[in-house]
Protein backbone atom coordinates (compact mmCIF):
# COMPACT_ATOMS: atom_id res chain seq x y z
CA UNK A 1 0.00 0.00 0.00
CA UNK A 2 1.34 3.37 -0.91
CA UNK A 3 1.03 6.12 1.57
CA UNK A 4 0.77 9.52 0.06
CA UNK A 5 2.53 12.53 1.40
CA UNK A 6 -0.43 14.04 3.14
CA UNK A 7 -1.22 10.84 4.96
CA UNK A 8 2.37 10.37 6.04
CA UNK A 9 2.46 13.87 7.34
CA UNK A 10 -0.66 13.13 9.35
CA UNK A 11 0.89 9.96 10.80
CA UNK A 12 4.00 11.86 11.76
CA UNK A 13 1.98 14.45 13.62
CA UNK A 14 0.07 11.72 15.37
CA UNK A 15 3.25 10.05 16.58
CA UNK A 16 4.72 13.38 17.59
CA UNK A 17 1.65 14.06 19.72
CA UNK A 18 1.78 10.79 21.62
CA UNK A 19 5.58 10.77 21.87
CA UNK A 20 5.91 12.62 25.19
CA UNK A 21 3.60 10.24 27.02
CA UNK A 22 4.95 7.15 25.30
CA UNK A 23 8.55 8.06 26.03
CA UNK A 24 7.62 8.90 29.62
CA UNK A 25 5.90 5.55 30.04
CA UNK A 26 8.85 3.68 28.54
CA UNK A 27 11.39 5.49 30.68
CA UNK A 28 9.51 5.49 33.98
CA UNK A 29 7.24 2.44 33.78
CA UNK A 30 8.25 -0.16 31.20
CA UNK A 31 12.00 0.06 31.61
CA UNK A 32 11.90 -0.14 35.45
CA UNK A 33 9.32 -2.91 35.21
CA UNK A 34 11.59 -5.18 33.20
CA UNK A 35 14.63 -4.06 35.18
CA UNK A 36 12.92 -5.14 38.41
CA UNK A 37 12.09 -8.57 37.00
CA UNK A 38 15.67 -8.91 35.79
CA UNK A 39 17.12 -7.74 39.13
CA UNK A 40 15.00 -10.20 41.07
CA UNK A 41 17.26 -13.01 39.81
CA UNK A 42 20.45 -11.36 41.06
CA UNK A 43 22.13 -10.77 44.37
CA UNK A 44 22.76 -7.05 44.57
CA UNK A 45 24.81 -5.40 47.33
CA UNK A 46 25.28 -1.84 48.50
CA UNK A 47 25.75 0.76 45.78
CA UNK A 48 24.03 -1.56 43.28
CA UNK A 49 27.01 -3.85 42.89
CA UNK A 50 25.88 -7.06 41.21
CA UNK A 51 27.18 -9.99 43.21
CA UNK A 52 26.12 -12.67 40.77
CA UNK A 53 23.15 -14.45 39.24
CA UNK A 54 21.26 -16.47 41.83
CA UNK A 55 18.36 -17.89 39.83
CA UNK A 56 15.18 -18.15 41.87
CA UNK A 57 17.02 -17.94 45.22
CA UNK A 58 15.39 -14.61 46.05
CA UNK A 59 11.98 -16.20 45.58
CA UNK A 60 12.71 -19.32 47.62
CA UNK A 61 14.17 -17.08 50.32
CA UNK A 62 10.87 -15.25 50.42
CA UNK A 63 9.02 -18.46 51.26
CA UNK A 64 11.19 -19.00 54.32
CA UNK A 65 11.18 -15.36 55.41
CA UNK A 66 8.93 -14.99 58.45
CA UNK A 67 8.98 -11.21 58.22
CA UNK A 68 7.72 -11.49 54.62
CA UNK A 69 4.75 -13.62 55.70
CA UNK A 70 3.94 -11.25 58.52
CA UNK A 71 4.12 -8.39 56.04
CA UNK A 72 1.74 -10.14 53.64
CA UNK A 73 -0.66 -10.77 56.51
CA UNK A 74 -0.55 -7.09 57.44
CA UNK A 75 -1.22 -6.06 53.87
CA UNK A 76 -4.24 -8.34 53.56
CA UNK A 77 -5.51 -7.01 56.86
CA UNK A 78 -5.27 -3.48 55.48
CA UNK A 79 -7.22 -4.51 52.39
CA UNK A 80 -9.90 -6.36 54.37
CA UNK A 81 -10.43 -3.45 56.75
CA UNK A 82 -9.87 -0.40 54.57
CA UNK A 83 -11.59 -1.37 51.31
CA UNK A 84 -15.15 -2.16 52.52
CA UNK A 85 -15.23 0.68 55.04
CA UNK A 86 -13.98 3.26 52.58
CA UNK A 87 -16.50 2.14 49.98
CA UNK A 88 -19.38 2.21 52.46
CA UNK A 89 -18.46 5.58 53.96
CA UNK A 90 -17.81 7.31 50.65
CA UNK A 91 -21.04 5.90 49.23
CA UNK A 92 -23.00 7.02 52.27
CA UNK A 93 -21.59 10.52 52.24
CA UNK A 94 -22.02 10.82 48.47
CA UNK A 95 -25.71 9.92 48.75
CA UNK A 96 -26.23 12.33 51.64
CA UNK A 97 -24.43 15.16 49.88
CA UNK A 98 -26.60 14.64 46.83
CA UNK A 99 -29.60 15.82 48.84
CA UNK A 100 -30.56 19.45 49.12
CA UNK A 101 -29.19 20.51 52.49
CA UNK A 102 -28.09 23.90 53.75
CA UNK A 103 -24.37 24.63 53.30
CA UNK A 104 -23.94 21.84 50.80
CA UNK A 105 -20.74 23.22 49.26
CA UNK A 106 -19.21 23.67 52.69
CA UNK A 107 -19.83 20.02 53.54
CA UNK A 108 -18.44 18.90 50.21
CA UNK A 109 -15.29 20.95 50.82
CA UNK A 110 -14.92 19.58 54.35
CA UNK A 111 -15.17 15.98 53.19
CA UNK A 112 -12.84 16.55 50.27
CA UNK A 113 -10.16 18.42 52.25
CA UNK A 114 -8.26 15.33 53.49
CA UNK A 115 -7.86 14.21 49.88
CA UNK A 116 -6.02 17.36 48.87
CA UNK A 117 -3.96 17.68 52.05
CA UNK A 118 -0.40 16.38 51.96
CA UNK A 119 0.00 12.92 53.41
CA UNK A 120 2.94 14.22 55.43
CA UNK A 121 0.84 16.91 57.06
CA UNK A 122 -1.99 14.50 57.81
CA UNK A 123 0.40 12.01 59.35
CA UNK A 124 2.03 14.62 61.55
CA UNK A 125 -1.33 15.59 63.01
CA UNK A 126 -2.47 12.00 63.55
CA UNK A 127 0.87 11.07 65.07
CA UNK A 128 0.30 13.72 67.66
CA UNK A 129 -3.30 12.58 68.24
CA UNK A 130 -2.13 9.01 68.79
CA UNK A 131 1.02 9.91 70.75
CA UNK A 132 1.27 7.61 73.76
CA UNK A 133 2.56 10.23 76.20
CA UNK A 134 1.41 13.59 74.91
CA UNK A 135 -1.43 12.73 72.53
CA UNK A 136 -4.96 14.15 72.66
CA UNK A 137 -6.60 10.73 72.33
CA UNK A 138 -4.97 9.45 75.51
CA UNK A 139 -5.83 12.74 77.18
CA UNK A 140 -9.44 12.19 76.19
CA UNK A 141 -9.71 8.60 77.41
CA UNK A 142 -7.78 9.65 80.51
CA UNK A 143 -10.67 11.86 81.56
CA UNK A 144 -12.78 8.69 81.66
CA UNK A 145 -10.22 7.14 83.96
CA UNK A 146 -8.77 4.76 81.37
CA UNK A 147 -5.06 3.96 81.17
CA UNK A 148 -3.07 5.50 78.33
CA UNK A 149 -2.45 3.27 75.31
CA UNK A 150 0.68 3.27 73.16
CA UNK A 151 -1.42 3.51 70.02
CA UNK A 152 1.32 3.55 67.42
CA UNK A 153 3.81 1.42 69.31
CA UNK A 154 1.92 -1.66 70.29
CA UNK A 155 1.27 -4.56 67.99
CA UNK A 156 -2.41 -4.71 68.87
CA UNK A 157 -3.41 -1.16 68.01
CA UNK A 158 -0.94 0.30 65.51
CA UNK A 159 -2.45 -1.38 62.45
CA UNK A 160 -5.93 -0.16 63.28
CA UNK A 161 -4.68 3.38 63.76
CA UNK A 162 -3.16 3.29 60.28
CA UNK A 163 -6.47 1.96 58.92
CA UNK A 164 -8.45 4.76 60.57
CA UNK A 165 -6.24 7.41 59.04
CA UNK A 166 -6.32 5.74 55.62
CA UNK A 167 -10.12 5.50 55.63
CA UNK A 168 -10.48 9.04 56.88
CA UNK A 169 -8.17 10.50 54.26
CA UNK A 170 -9.43 8.43 51.29
CA UNK A 171 -13.16 8.70 51.82
CA UNK A 172 -13.50 12.23 50.46
CA UNK A 173 -11.71 11.47 47.23
CA UNK A 174 -13.88 8.48 46.33
CA UNK A 175 -16.94 10.31 47.60
CA UNK A 176 -16.44 12.94 44.86
CA UNK A 177 -16.15 10.26 42.16
CA UNK A 178 -19.31 8.53 43.38
CA UNK A 179 -21.13 11.83 43.69
CA UNK A 180 -20.34 12.61 40.06
CA UNK A 181 -21.68 9.16 39.14
CA UNK A 182 -24.88 9.70 41.10
CA UNK A 183 -25.47 13.06 39.47
CA UNK A 184 -25.10 11.43 36.07
CA UNK A 185 -28.24 9.38 36.73
CA UNK A 186 -31.27 10.85 34.99
CA UNK A 187 -33.91 12.42 37.29
CA UNK A 188 -36.55 10.70 35.16
CA UNK A 189 -35.96 7.31 36.78
CA UNK A 190 -36.57 8.70 40.25
CA UNK A 191 -39.65 10.63 39.20
CA UNK A 192 -41.13 7.53 37.61
CA UNK A 193 -40.38 5.52 40.76
CA UNK A 194 -41.93 8.17 42.98
CA UNK A 195 -45.11 8.04 40.95
CA UNK A 196 -45.14 4.29 41.56
CA UNK A 197 -44.76 4.99 45.29
CA UNK A 198 -41.19 3.79 45.83
CA UNK A 199 -39.57 4.53 49.21
CA UNK A 200 -36.17 6.22 49.56
CA UNK A 201 -34.40 2.95 50.22
CA UNK A 202 -36.10 1.22 47.31
CA UNK A 203 -35.01 4.01 45.01
CA UNK A 204 -31.44 3.65 46.23
CA UNK A 205 -31.45 -0.12 45.82
CA UNK A 206 -33.24 -0.38 42.49
CA UNK A 207 -32.05 2.78 40.73
CA UNK A 208 -28.96 4.37 42.28
CA UNK A 209 -26.99 1.20 42.95
CA UNK A 210 -27.39 -0.52 39.55
CA UNK A 211 -26.84 2.66 37.57
CA UNK A 212 -23.87 3.58 39.71
CA UNK A 213 -22.26 0.15 39.42
CA UNK A 214 -19.70 1.08 36.70
CA UNK A 215 -18.42 3.93 38.86
CA UNK A 216 -18.54 1.75 41.94
CA UNK A 217 -16.57 -0.92 40.13
CA UNK A 218 -13.88 1.58 39.24
CA UNK A 219 -13.78 2.87 42.81
CA UNK A 220 -13.47 -0.63 44.30
CA UNK A 221 -10.62 -1.56 41.99
CA UNK A 222 -8.77 1.67 42.69
CA UNK A 223 -9.11 1.32 46.45
CA UNK A 224 -7.92 -2.27 46.38
CA UNK A 225 -4.86 -1.43 44.33
CA UNK A 226 -3.95 1.63 46.35
CA UNK A 227 -4.44 -0.27 49.61
CA UNK A 228 -2.17 -3.06 48.46
CA UNK A 229 0.41 -0.39 47.78
CA UNK A 230 -0.12 1.53 50.97
CA UNK A 231 3.17 3.04 52.06
CA UNK A 232 3.26 6.71 52.94
CA UNK A 233 0.95 6.59 55.95
CA UNK A 234 2.99 3.79 57.51
CA UNK A 235 6.32 5.32 56.58
CA UNK A 236 5.34 8.65 58.08
CA UNK A 237 3.55 7.42 61.20
CA UNK A 238 5.48 4.36 62.32
CA UNK A 239 9.15 4.89 62.93
CA UNK A 240 11.35 2.05 61.68
CA UNK A 241 12.60 1.92 65.26
CA UNK A 242 9.11 1.26 66.57
CA UNK A 243 8.20 -2.02 68.26
CA UNK A 244 5.19 -2.23 65.99
CA UNK A 245 6.96 -1.92 62.66
CA UNK A 246 6.84 -5.64 61.89
CA UNK A 247 3.15 -5.78 62.61
CA UNK A 248 2.26 -2.74 60.55
CA UNK A 249 4.59 -2.63 57.57
CA UNK A 250 2.99 -3.29 54.21
CA UNK A 251 4.67 -5.12 51.37
CA UNK A 252 5.74 -1.83 49.78
CA UNK A 253 7.18 -0.63 53.07
CA UNK A 254 9.11 -3.88 53.45
CA UNK A 255 10.28 -3.49 49.88
CA UNK A 256 11.50 0.03 50.61
CA UNK A 257 13.34 -1.01 53.74
CA UNK A 258 14.95 -3.98 52.03
CA UNK A 259 16.03 -1.98 49.00
CA UNK A 260 17.09 1.31 50.53
CA UNK A 261 17.77 0.70 54.19
CA UNK A 262 19.31 -2.75 53.96
CA UNK A 263 20.71 -2.25 50.44
CA UNK A 264 19.42 -5.61 49.23
CA UNK A 265 17.92 -4.65 45.88
CA UNK A 266 17.81 -8.17 44.43
CA UNK A 267 15.57 -9.48 47.18
CA UNK A 268 13.55 -6.26 47.15
CA UNK A 269 12.92 -6.70 43.43
CA UNK A 270 11.57 -10.18 44.04
CA UNK A 271 9.18 -8.69 46.62
CA UNK A 272 8.00 -6.08 44.11
CA UNK A 273 7.40 -8.75 41.47
CA UNK A 274 5.40 -10.82 43.94
CA UNK A 275 3.21 -7.84 44.86
CA UNK A 276 2.70 -7.15 41.17
CA UNK A 277 1.52 -10.74 40.62
CA UNK A 278 -0.88 -10.59 43.56
CA UNK A 279 -2.46 -7.34 42.44
CA UNK A 280 -2.65 -8.50 38.84
CA UNK A 281 -4.34 -11.73 39.91
CA UNK A 282 -6.92 -9.94 42.01
CA UNK A 283 -7.63 -7.38 39.32
CA UNK A 284 -8.10 -10.05 36.64
CA UNK A 285 -10.46 -11.87 38.99
CA UNK A 286 -12.46 -8.68 39.49
CA UNK A 287 -12.62 -8.01 35.76
CA UNK A 288 -14.05 -11.48 35.27
CA UNK A 289 -16.50 -11.06 38.14
CA UNK A 290 -17.79 -7.69 36.97
CA UNK A 291 -20.22 -9.38 34.56
CA UNK A 292 -22.13 -10.57 37.58
CA UNK A 293 -22.84 -7.16 39.08
CA UNK A 294 -21.74 -4.28 36.92
CA UNK A 295 -24.51 -2.83 34.83
CA UNK A 296 -23.49 -0.98 31.68
CA UNK A 297 -26.35 0.94 30.14
Amino acid sequence: MRINRKKRNEYLWGYAMIAPVTLGLIAFYFYPFFQVIFDSFYKIGSFDRRLGFVGIDNYTKMLADKEMWQTLMNTFQYVIIIVPLTVVFSMLIAVLLNKKVKGLSIFRVIYFLPAITMAAAISMVWRWIFNGDYGILNGLIGTFGLDPVQWLNSKQTALFCICCVAIWSNTGYYMIILLAGIQGISRGYYEAAEIDGATGFQKFKKITLPLLSPTLFYVVIMIIISTFQTFDGIYLMISTKSNAIKHTQSVVMYFYRTAFEHSNKGYASAIAVMLFLIIMGITIFQMKMQKKWVNYE
Binding site: P32, P214, F217, I221, A272
Partner: peptide
Protein backbone atom coordinates in the same frame (compact mmCIF):
# COMPACT_ATOMS: atom_id res chain seq x y z
CA UNK B 1 -19.05 0.65 26.14
CA UNK B 2 -17.11 3.90 26.28
CA UNK B 3 -17.06 3.66 30.05
CA UNK B 4 -15.54 0.23 29.80
CA UNK B 5 -12.76 1.48 27.60
CA UNK B 6 -11.98 4.28 29.98
CA UNK B 7 -12.00 1.83 32.85
CA UNK B 8 -9.65 -0.50 31.02
CA UNK B 9 -7.15 2.24 30.35
CA UNK B 10 -7.32 3.46 33.91
CA UNK B 11 -6.66 -0.07 35.07
CA UNK B 12 -3.63 -0.36 32.86
CA UNK B 13 -2.30 2.86 34.30
CA UNK B 14 -2.90 1.79 37.87
CA UNK B 15 -1.24 -1.56 37.32
CA UNK B 16 1.73 0.33 36.07
CA UNK B 17 1.73 2.22 39.33
CA UNK B 18 2.60 -1.07 41.04
CA UNK B 19 5.71 -1.15 39.03
CA UNK B 20 6.54 2.35 39.99
CA UNK B 21 7.12 0.98 43.46
CA UNK B 22 9.95 -0.99 41.98
CA UNK B 23 11.51 2.00 40.39
CA UNK B 24 14.30 3.36 42.46
Amino acid sequence: MKVKKILASILCASLAVTILAGCS
